[in-house]
């Protein structure tokens, strides 16, 4: 845990050999203890969410709680994927699936369509975000044109305004365009949210690419479009992966704009439908937890898969700053 020890840490073999046994043991115990605390804190809540999603309603609401599912069941997930087949009304909701305690939220059948909406919006945002940012970042990082700095600052400044402050006018603009409750409205909004950050990442990456490669390409007769496609695009794959992941995650997780800009199952995304469950009193806990698990899986998978790119993307510019 000490700053001093981590400096010596990188060549573990040599450092360890030079040090007496007692402090090494102490250090090991300390690290183990803190690692355990860290794992409990970071993974504990999610583990509990997963655990209670694998229990029946009766087990999940037991006192004292069942820390692990006594008999793991996928009934809640089955209920989610079957929800579309049944009509839930005030009369029928009580007699529903016994596994969920019979309390299926009224919006249960909206869950799968909202999952689809979230995926569609996320993929569109990721793709368009990359296309738009790529050209702009190239121009700002590589071409020396009048208004270059002004363009950069304007782009970044749009992100300083709190989302909640943008919600009101954006709602009116989107309504005037007749796009309320459409996936297109969400895609355009999320582009505005994600593009500035992507441009920022790509610029700091592009600036690290040797200028000579650019000159060579231009000498060989490439225009800017050619230089972008043949030099910058292939060399910045890590940054592109990070940018795609961020855009998808931001759009997948976003809540406020989706809450205000969508009204029903046509355009509602997963967070909106789930938040509806949470605020419904009669909701089955195990069912909602299962819905939460479904919402958590894609972002966590992406995070694990692209961990290295995400970390370098997130911290881009931090060192310079």
């Amino acid at each position: 845990m000490s700053g001093a020890e981590d400096r010596r840490a990188p060549p573990p073999g040599r450092a360890a050999a030079r040090r007496p046994v007692a402090p090494r043991l102490g250090r090991g115990l300390l690290l183990a203890a803190f690692s355990l605390l860290f794992v409990l804190y970071v993974a504990g809540p999610v583990a509990w969410l997963v655990s209670s999603s694998l229990q029946t309603e009766a087990q999940a609401t037991a006192v004292p709680p069942n820390w692990l599912p006594p008999e793991p069941t996928l009934a809640n997930f089955e209920a989610i994927f079957r929800a579309g087949e049944r009509v839930v009304t005030y009369e029928t909701r009580r007699q529903g699936d016994p596994a969920t305690g019979g309390f299926l939220p009224t919006g249960a059948q909206n869950l799968l369509p909202s999952l689809r909406n979230s995926l569609v919006v996320g993929l569109w945002v990721a793709a368009l975000n990359l296309l738009l940012s790529l050209t702009a970042a190239y121009a700002i990082a590589v071409i020396d044109f009048r208004g270059r700095r002004a363009t950069l600052y304007t782009v970044l400044a749009t992100r300083v305004i709190p989302d909640i402050a943008l919600v009101v006018p954006l709602f009116l603009v989107i309504r005037a365009l007749g796009l309320i409750n459409s996936l297109a409205a969400l895609v355009v909004t999320y582009l505005a949210v994600t593009v500035p950050f992507t441009i920022f990442i790509l610029i700091s990456y592009f600036e690290g690419i040797p200028r000579d490669l650019y000159r060579a390409a231009r000498v060989d007769g490439c225009g800017h479009w050619g230089a972008l496609r043949q030099v910058y695009l292939p060399l910045s794959l890590p940054a592109l992966v990070a940018a795609l992941t961020f855009a998808f995650l931001t759009s997948w997780n976003e809540f406020v704009f989706a809450l205000v800009l969508t009204q029903n199952v046509e355009a509602q995304t997963l967070p909106i439908v789930i938040s509806g469950f949470v605020m419904d009193f009669t909701t089955s806990f195990s069912f909602v937890n299962a819905a939460g698990v479904i919402a958590i899986v894609p972002p966590v998978l992406l995070a694990v898969l692209f961990q290295r790119y995400i970390v370098s993307g997130l911290t881009a510019g931090a060192v310079k700053g």
Partner: peptide, 17 residues
């Protein structure tokens, strides 16, 4: 990265639970 990737709605639901 687990908490970072968790959607805020799920974060709220999880802690409320």
């Amino acid at each position: 990265l687990l908490p970072w990737a968790t959607p805020s709605v799920v974060n709220g639901l999880m802690w409320k639970w």
